[in-house]
Amino acid sequence: MIEALLLLAGLVAVFTTLSIVWILVTEALPFFRRVPLGDFLTDTMWTPLFAEPRYGILPLLAGTLVTTAVALTVAIPAGTIIAIHLSEFASRRLREVVKPALEMLGAVPTVVYGYFALAIVTPFLQKLIPGLPGFNMLSAGLVIGIMIVPYVASVSEDAMRAVPTHMREGSYAMGATRLQTALRVVVPGALSGMAAAYILGISRAVGETMVVAVAAGLQPNLTWDPTESAATITSFIVQVTLGDLPHDSIGYQSIFAAGLVLLIVTLAFNVAGFLLARRFREAY
């Protein structure tokens, strides 16, 4: 009896995954019955709520990729430096103070980060780049980058600490300094784990919603220029659900089609990250 109940609780996770796939697919199907898949993947305009609707996912995908790329230019260097520092250089006491503080940085609600991007980072960037619009992907991307630094740092640090101490000692015995040991022994040894950290970071940045909804603008715009404003897959979903769409309208169905694309992209990254993480665990 108790065993059955416990098993049932475990199965909730399986049911959740199945329901996610089921709901996204069944709600997106009527959309794809009206919009040919070819148009969806190649059309360069996304205007499902206009009088003459066009349904090309490319502008939303471009917005998502640009903000993600900007985020990574912050998160990967900063996260990696912090990880090397904490794993190879920092004293125990420093680590005990810094790790909880980083955890707090990762716990800030995303809508608060949205405010940070719009009210603090954008005005600051406007001083550096004259003519920068009030909504832009640069500011949103930078803030998402800060947001995922703790995540990238903590997963990379775990990977570095999994490198056995005797490898470091071997390196020191050869006369290498700490930095040389870190960069030439520890980092290569932890490489697949670090790659996993980066990929999981990408998946977070792709799925981030509130920062882009607040700070990047909501107008779909097929551009690779981060200083422009553009909508992402996630901010489009938010924009549509803020309004009151009838249940069986194509606008309603389009958010499930967009959600399906988002799920497929993040799932691909997550699986790749998971496989890499498993590989590094088996290495020693």
């Binding site: 996770a13 996610i20 996630t234």
Partner: peptide, 16 residues
Amino acid sequence: NVTNLAGVPSIIYGLL
């Protein structure tokens, strides 16, 4: 499934 769900973006839960 537990590992995978931790990586699903929160807005997907909203659509679910």
